[in-house]
Design a protein around this nucleic acid. Structure first.
Length: 340
DNA sequence: AATTCGTGGTG
DNA sequence: TCACCAAGAAT
């Protein structure tokens, strides 16, 4: 008779779970990174950090977190800020829908919850931008609710420890719930993610220093599970038009419409007409830029467009505008915008 | 249910 | 150089 890969056959014996919990939590206590959002118990700030960390590395999110929580120190402060201001603070971090939903959720919290962040996973789940993962993360970390999280780290760690990925997404959540340390749910969740982010790496896991090795089936013998996703390719040409007015320099920029599906309301360079693009022999700048599933070949040419859409913006005002990441990259490369 | 959203580090 | 991928959510 063939053995089936059911949960009972492939998981960790319940008898061995307490020791696993102790080992992983001890490792986390001793080796967990000191991160700014781990130094606070403010639910609002933990919420901000969790949204910033959605599909975003710790290294990228850290400085944004510091700036954002300094600028908007409370839910109320965020709620009364303008969307442009919020987007400007988010500029460069990507996935701008997160910023809009966080802003909208902050307003909701002020109006519907008297400015107090909802304290349960179930209530958090109703706020825009808070899905299954984020609701459980905030509830466990900020409020100590005994609820487990599953992110891509937990999926990888869990698959390797079990020896194989489960048959469905839901089994990840079921297993995470079984493994959860219900005395320290927030720390346990962060420990699992920390393990995936620093030890149980996608490419080559550092099994030699892994605190969970005793409980791991694969121990580095990972079955390849890669998929090649086809990417789209596009070429785009932007125009750099500048003029001097009263001794101050201004650039021609365009703001995306509020109804745009992508990056609404954010600023970028005007695109060149095809005739202009063809006529320009030597671009000022040429670079590659990828936006999720599309690879762009970007050219920037000099121009002096006097009519058409766009606004002349003084270079002094540039720092406060919510630029798209591509626009920021271009302006930085051209030396127009100093790094920030 | 499969796609799409941004960006930067990494090997 | 370039494909992979990261504390996911919404549609």
């Amino acid at each position: 008779m063939k053995r089936k890969n059911c949960m009972l056959g492939i998981g960790i014996s319940p008898r061995r779970l307490p020791a696993l919990r102790r080992a992983l939590l001890a490792w986390y206590d001793a080796h967990g990174r000191v991160l700014p959002w781990r130094q606070t118990s403010d639910p609002y700030k933990i919420w901000v950090s969790e949204v910033m960390l959605q599909q975003t590395r710790v290294a990228a999110a850290t400085e944004y977190y510091q700036r954002f929580t300094a600028r908007f120190a409370t839910v109320r402060a965020l709620a009364r800020a303008s969307e442009a201001d919020v987007l400007a603070q988010w500029s460069g971090l990507g996935y701008y829908r997160r910023a809009r939903m966080l802003h909208a959720a902050a307003k909701l919290v002020v109006e519907e919850y008297s400015g107090e962040v909802p304290t349960s996973e179930a209530a958090l789940r109703h706020l825009p931008g808070i899905g299954r993962y984020t609701a459980a993360a905030i509830a466990s970390i900020a409020f100590g609710e005994a609820t487990a999280v599953v992110d891509s780290n937990v999926e990888r760690v869990s698959s390797r420890m079990r020896g194989a990925p489960p048959n469905s997404k839901d089994e990840y959540w079921q297993q995470a719930s079984e493994w959860l340390d219900r005395k320290r749910p927030g720390d346990w969740n962060q420990a699992m993610m920390e393990l995936g982010a620093t030890i149980c790496l996608p490419g080559k896991p550092k099994c030699g220093v892994c605190p969970a090795r005793r409980w791991c089936v694969t121990q580095g013998q990972l079955s390849a599970e890669k998929r090649a996703d086809s990417r789209h390719k596009h070429t785009v040409t932007y125009l750099l038009a500048s003029k001097n007015t009263k001794g101050s320099k201004a650039l021609l920029l365009v703001q995306r419409g509020e109804e745009e599906r992508l990056m609404a309301g954010m600023w970028e360079l005007p695109t060149a007409e095809s005739a202009e693009a063809d006529a320009a022999s030597v671009p000022l700048l040429q670079l590659k830029h990828s936006i999720t599933v599309t690879d762009y070949e970007v050219r920037v040419i000099a121009g002096t467009r006097s009519r058409g859409q766009g606004s002349w913006v003084s270079v002094r005002e540039l720092q406060s505008l919510p630029f798209t990441g591509l626009a920021r990259k271009i302006l930085r490369r051209l030396g127009v915008l100093t790094a920030y």
